[in-house]
Design a protein around this nucleic acid. Structure first.
Lengths: 224, 224
DNA sequence: GCTGTATGAGCGAGCGTTCAGTCGGCAATG
DNA sequence: CATTGCCGACTGAACGCTCGCTCATACAGC
């Protein structure tokens, strides 16, 4: 099994236990338990004892696999970001079917965000509680995910599917798409009054495509 | 922070002190102190003693004006949202100068967000720490702010400045504008590598105007 | 003296973390 | 097969400390 080269940074968190396989197993239990509790009550309101209980471990054992509660938060953020990255990668890959590539990419991505709503909210809320060292690690993943969209959009421009816009405009579009996904998660409580996820997707997609169409005709005031 | 206590819900928080004028004065001290500390260290890592000290009060006095630390967080969120609402109202009003109304509205709003970056981040991070009762109160304000954009955009449609789009599309555009402001605040650490606030504004504005132009043939060429 | 505001030492519950001890399993030895 | 010794994962009571909150006391204005 080539799981040694995970895209996650979990291996940077020290452990007392020597059996690597066991570490991975237990940490999965722990992270799964923690994610549920953090989503429900937030990081600070969740006690390490509760986490241990939910993971079917004693507190003692918990601390064999983790050096501090903050480490645990990092494992959680890392796991979520890993899942996100995997989801986005798949979504972008799945959308390579000729015609409506961009629309499909957007749709797949938004569906990932819809599925991971709670996790996205959690990341926005608790990333700041991480020690600086872990926080930069988490932000790196955020950069990587946005990078996937940078690449995808630039590829579409090169292929002529999209008009040849200037780099800053394309990059910003990538940012926008990423954030629109987050927006659905963060403001579902509000948006869902008016829109279903499908309506949201088609409206936002129309907006994006329109903006490109408008740009093709003439290069408007998009100068710095 | 010249907070306008009029349209806030601060009066719903009980106090031991009877002199209303004094309550407002002290609470302003307290909120100002707390905002600074919360931005710096977050809600949970800030102690009530620190807040009292920064506000030039004893802990005893602090608790004359506030029933719990959570109440205090509410006062903070409420004050920030109040300031935000005031800022947006002014921004929208200031932009009523004929031609590039929409572009000006957007610009003014984004500048408000840029100025209030720390506060916006704080709101996103700590709103969930509020007791349910206060949280709904805070979310109401969020709805009100978005509502200001609903109205503004619909007015522009009626006046013929914007093409007559369907309500859901217009409302979503309002949401988008609101969130783009937040996005600048939340992802400044990332966006500022590539864009200045002015570049960000003009790029996003171009995108919006283009999307309108693409939507219907009859669009007035309002330039920023 | 009475009312209403200010003070800060003290309380005690709750928390993250530790550590002395338990126990199952495995390998070597007789 | 039985015995012994060791390893390493597991346990949970206990520790030390933090922090939200209280209350007996002091004090100021009328």
């Amino acid at each position: 099994m080539a799981t040694h080269f995970n895209q996650t940074a979990a291996h940077k968190v020290p452990t007392q236990v020597k059996d690597l396989k066991l570490v991975q197993l237990r940490r999965r239990q722990i992270v799964d338990a923690a994610v549920g509790l953090f989503v429900q009550k937030g990081f600070h309101r969740t006690t390490t004892r509760e986490i241990a209980k939910a993971a079917n471990l004693s507190i003692g054992s918990l601390y064999e696999y983790v050096t501090s509660k903050e480490d645990l938060l990092f494992l959680v953020c890392d796991a979520i970001h890993g899942e996100m990255e995997a989801g986005v990668t798949q979504a972008l890959a799945r959308a390579h079917t000729a015609a409506g590539v961009l629309a499909e990419m957007i749709r797949e991505y938004f569906l990932v965000c819809d599925r991971m709503t709670d996790h996205i909210v959690l990341i926005y809320q608790e990333t700041q509680s991480l020690p600086r060292k872990w926080r930069t690690e988490v932000l790196k993943t955020e950069v990587r995910v946005t990078g996937l969209f940078f690449e995808a959009l630039h590829r579409l421009c090169d292929e002529g599917v999209l008009p040849p816009l200037e780099k800053p405009a394309v990059d910003l579009m990538a940012h926008n798409i990423v954030v629109w996904g987050h927006m659905w998660a963060l403001r579902k409580w509000f948006l869902a009054r008016q829109y279903s996820i499908d309506q949201y997707i088609s409206l936002q997609t129309a907006l994006i495509l329109n903006s490109f169409n408008g740009a093709t005709a003439s290069a408007p005031g998009s100068q710095a």
